[in-house]
């Protein structure tokens, strides 16, 4: 931890080293910087959206060591040493993750603002509980708001992707 003389009045900063979408990133950040702002503003990963500022909507959900977390609810310094996956890191070699494919095929999005967070939350949910039914998916995604779809196609998509995962583990 050290003091810096940043023109924006940055005070004490700390080193953060994390694997973000497979790439090691090291930065000097103030302890008060939220993870979502670090991802968006410093790393340019704008796929992770900010919807509410109060950890209510889940638009900023990312994976930390494989588990979903709301990036507005963590400081960047808390992910030091972690492995972060954002929506940009989900597709491998341009091939959509089954969850992304299912969201697209099932029309599980309209405006798409909640989609990155919803997809990340769903990936983590299905990874942990592959056998969920409709109700289980709804319980698991209760922390992610969508205003366009009424959620029905989102639930379809998650179940479709879970089935896909079952067939191709």
């Amino acid at each position: 931890m050290r003091a810096s003389t940043d023109p924006h009045g940055k005070g004490v900063t700390m080193d953060v080293t994390a694997i973000v979408n497979g790439v090691e990133r090291t930065a000097d950040v103030e302890p008060r910087v939220l993870l979502v702002h670090w991802l968006r503003d410093e790393l340019g990963l704008t796929g992770t959206n900010v919807g509410c500022d109060t950890s209510s909507c889940g638009a900023c959900t990312v994976l930390i060591d494989g588990r979903s977390a709301k990036a507005c609810n963590l400081f960047a310094v808390q992910v030091d040493g972690s492995d972060i996956t954002t929506i940009e890191g989900l597709a491998i070699d341009g091939e959509l993750h089954p969850m992304q494919q299912a969201f697209h095929e099932c029309h599980a999005l309209q405006c798409g603002y909640c989609t990155p967070g919803m997809v990340m939350a769903a990936v983590s949910l299905i990874d942990e509980y592959p056998d969920l039914g409709d109700r289980g998916v709804r319980v698991g995604l209760e922390g992610n708001l969508c205003r366009c779809t009424g959620y029905q196609n989102i639930v379809h998509a998650v179940l479709q992707a879970a089935g896909e995962q079952e067939r191709h583990p």
Partner: peptide, 21 residues
């Protein structure tokens, strides 16, 4: 027919640029 959204792939990949981006 149930055509898929032309912006759907970009939206599920986080590549669709919202006004906040």
């Amino acid at each position: 027919e149930s055509a898929p959204r032309p912006d759907g792939v970009a939206k599920v990949q986080g590549r669709f640029a919202f006004s906040s981006d």
